[in-house]
């Protein structure tokens, strides 16, 4: 069985095999890279700082956009809903506030009013520490 047509003598043909190899490698690369996104993390412009530690896995991530919306797991929620979720998380962990690791990712252009309000409410719930997300400057 002959799959390819016999090439006429003296005619130059483009070899497809290496090109397909490269294209497949590129596809695999982009497929892999595009998976490395975290569902809980909204695309935000965080403050550009060195930070103190590498990000640990938090139990609860609160995203605050530059417009002042609170986004949790891709859903825009109100402040009272946020506190309700934190309360649920707290009771799911036996009511121990030290077990709830809250990460606040706030856009650097946003004023601190929402974070302040959140901190006041979290303090009432007995939470004593938060994590603040920063972006390492490239």
């Amino acid at each position: 069985m002959r799959l390819s047509k016999p090439r006429k003598q003296g005619q130059l043909g483009i070899s497809m095999t290496p090109m397909i190899d490269i294209v497949f490698l590129l596809i695999i690369f982009f497929m892999t890279v595009s998976q490395i996104t975290y569902v809980n993390d909204e695309p935000l412009e965080l403050p550009q700082l060195a930070g103190t530690d590498d990000q640990e896995t938090s139990t609860f991530t609160i995203n605050i956009t530059s417009e002042g919306s609170i986004v949790i797991s891709g859903r825009t929620v109100s402040l009272s809903e946020t506190l309700l979720f934190v309360g649920q998380e707290l009771s799911a962990r036996g009511g121990d506030p030290s077990q709830v690791k809250i990460m606040i990712r706030c856009d650097h252009r946003r004023s601190s009013d929402l974070v302040n309000e959140l901190v006041r409410k979290l303090s009432e719930l007995g939470i004593r520490q938060i994590r603040v997300g920063v972006q390492v400057s490239s």
Partner: peptide
Amino acid sequence: TTTFVKAERQLRPMI
């Protein structure tokens, strides 16, 4: 469609 994730770190203040 690919968007690259920027490297993030954290600060840990008490409240």
